[in-house]
Design a protein around this nucleic acid. Sequence first.
DNA 1: CGGCTTGTTGCGCACATGTCCAACACCCGA
DNA 2: TCGGGTGTTGGACATGTGCGCAACAAGCCG
Lengths: 201, 201
Amino acid sequence: MIVRMAPEERRDAIVAAALVIARRKGLGGTTVRDVASEMGTSSGLIHHYFDSMDDVLAAAFDRAASNDLARTMEAMSAGADPVEKLVAFFDNYSVPGSDWTFQLWLDAWAEASRRSAVRATSERLNIEWQQLLAENLKEGVAVGVFDCPDPDGTAWRIISLLDGLSLQVVAHEATLARETISFWIRSYAESETGLAPGSLR
Amino acid sequence: MIVRMAPEERRDAIVAAALVIARRKGLGGTTVRDVASEMGTSSGLIHHYFDSMDDVLAAAFDRAASNDLARTMEAMSAGADPVEKLVAFFDNYSVPGSDWTFQLWLDAWAEASRRSAVRATSERLNIEWQQLLAENLKEGVAVGVFDCPDPDGTAWRIISLLDGLSLQVVAHEATLARETISFWIRSYAESETGLAPGSLR
DNA sequence: CGGCTTGTTGCGCACATGTCCAACACCCGA
DNA sequence: TCGGGTGTTGGACATGTGCGCAACAAGCCG
């Protein structure tokens, strides 16, 4: 029995199914047939909605990363001041059990050089994350709680340190402990913003 | 005409050929047939020397990364003191034109969760890089030129910031300038070691 | 109710993939 | 000079790949 869906709905379903597979087999390991059978439909259907597999993967990664970003933005908006927001940022960045999202980032960075749609998406989202942090830093400077001469640069450095450390945890698991990198990244942020040690706990 | 090689030699040739392909098509995109035809031999030969493709890829990555490591160690050994060695470390980390090595790192980190041999290799080499840096920091502390309470932690943080920043350059190219990250990483190292700003130039 | 748009199928095409293996060619030691 | 050991071949095998397409069916509109 054919289940006919509205275009929007079906597109969403495809992306959702692709995400399930990507979570299990990696971005690069996600195939048209896998996605189709996950949805319980035929593989031809995927190409009815997407020009190429590259686009499907980019859309899947986009949804996962955008979702994390939105969740973090929401968590930050609950903070009363820039300091609280910064704490919310870090609390949200590495929620336990969401390692698979970061694995997707690793996949995306690696695939970036060979899949243009994925590359464009990861670049855009990376910048959005940096912006989110930078805006909060600027607000803190304006209000006078942060001492930070170059918020944009600081944001890039914090994001990058976070990525570099998370990478070790996700790719190699045992080399670095989760609590350790949580402590390190907060200490670094404190030093970059002129906050007293322990302020971001 | 069959060209018979000594086992050692042939193994090396396979790894070298795999590296040529991996450089062009990525670690994950390297296939048995590609490697074979790069050597001008048959594909069966690869499996005569390696149990699986995973092992070939791990060996190829191992050679590339070990090579970089050795080159950096040598450059550091030319430095007269820990400060000079640290400068040599940074100078060597991001030689222009060796982006492809870093792309291999990106590939390896992404593949780590799905190819155990690659994973073991990248984990080991990541630790070796950290050790290289940590040993130099410890030496500097012993001699009294560095003020650094936790050299091992500092080494991890420097390596991670470097990785996180390099990642943006290699995967996204345009977002961050090379000279910018070179400046940032040196400034960060100065602050972690208690050196005066500009010491690592 | 009939027609038409369009979502959906299921399979075919042309390749590519890792792995394995019987046969072959080369070199060394007897 | 003649085995035997082993490096090497070339293709078989089963499976997987993205993509395209004719046919079918569902639902909307007149």
